[in-house]
């Protein structure tokens, strides 16, 4: 199994959670991939798009397209950013617009990390070991726009030492929602608390997700609540031995 993979680490991981990016690279290299990182990359444009600033989002999306136009596989440690590119770029560049063809060419080459492992690398067991009880948080865009539900759970099931315990409301939103989290901070944090209360009932000590943005929100509220939980990106679990 070999091939070239280009990382789009997302701006959030680049700036705040670099270890997630390194973990993705570690896992992919262990599987025999040659991993590259293009330093011209920045953001996918989602913050502006979701806030209603389409022209601003378009400009950022154009930059993304220019950076990655000749990559074969682009792996992204985020369901939300992946969906921005594979779904919403089509709204930013409707049929007939200049970059439409480029978007059509690029979109199928963009892979959310867990989906890439299962569908391209075709591997469930990456040889990871993680001692602990974890629960999996379905991030909304991964779940509802990319249809990712069982995949990450299958990968977790193969991790030695790990016990997966489902919460009752795994599919309810954590409340992040990008700028929603600062436009409606009380509502957003209330949603996180509801989620965390459900997680506490599982007895898990670690929340796993494929989106660092959800984890940042949950971790922030966990710290404010003072409850004994930690958050980890799926890549960090799969990279641990």
């Amino acid at each position: 199994m070999y091939g070239r993979v280009s990382l789009f680490v997302t701006c959030l991981v680049d700036q705040l959670f670099p270890n997630v990016g390194l973990a993705v690279a570690d896992v992919l290299e262990r599987l025999g991939y040659q991993v590259e990182f293009r330093p011209q990359q920045t953001c996918c444009g989602q913050p502006a798009f979701n806030s209603g600033y389409r022209e601003e989002a378009q400009a950022v999306a154009e930059h993304f397209i220019r950076v990655f136009r000749d990559a074969d596989f682009i792996v992204v440690p985020s369901g939300s950013c992946t969906s921005m590119i594979t779904h919403h770029f089509f709204e930013l560049f409707p049929a007939g617009s200049d970059l439409r063809e480029e978007v059509e060419y690029l979109a199928p080459r963009v892979w959310e990390f867990s989906k890439f492992l299962l569908e391209v690398a075709k591997v469930e067991d990456v040889g990871a070991r993680f001692e602990g009880v974890v629960t999996y948080h379905d991030s909304c865009h991964a779940l509802r726009e990319l249809g990712i539900r069982e995949g990450p759970r299958r990968l977790l099931a193969k991790v030695r030492g790990l016990t997966l315990r489902e919460m009752s409301i795994a599919e309810e939103c954590c409340g992040f929602g990008g700028t929603f989290s600062i436009k409606f901070p009380e509502v957003s944090a209330g949603m996180a608390r509801t989620k965390i209360e459900s997680i506490l009932k599982t007895g898990a000590s670690t929340i796993v997700s494929i989106d660092s943005s959800c984890l940042m929100q949950l971790q922030g509220v966990i710290a404010r609540m003072g409850v004994p939980l930690e958050t980890k990106h799926l890549a960090e679990i799969l990279a641990s031995r």
Binding site: V9, V13, D14, Q15, L16, F17, P18, N19, G21, L22, A25, F37, P39, S181, I182, K183, P185, E186, S188, A189, A192, M216, Q217, Q219, G220, V221, A223, R224
Partner: peptide, 27 residues
């Protein structure tokens, strides 16, 4: 502004000592 609104409800993530791109160069 935004930082205050974020922190009104939750703790702010600690800024990473180095960005991914810096760590990648080292790696």
């Amino acid at each position: 502004g935004p930082a205050r609104l974020w922190a009104s409800q939750r703790e702010t993530p600690k800024p990473a000592a180095a960005s991914f791109r810096q760590l990648w160069r080292q790696r």
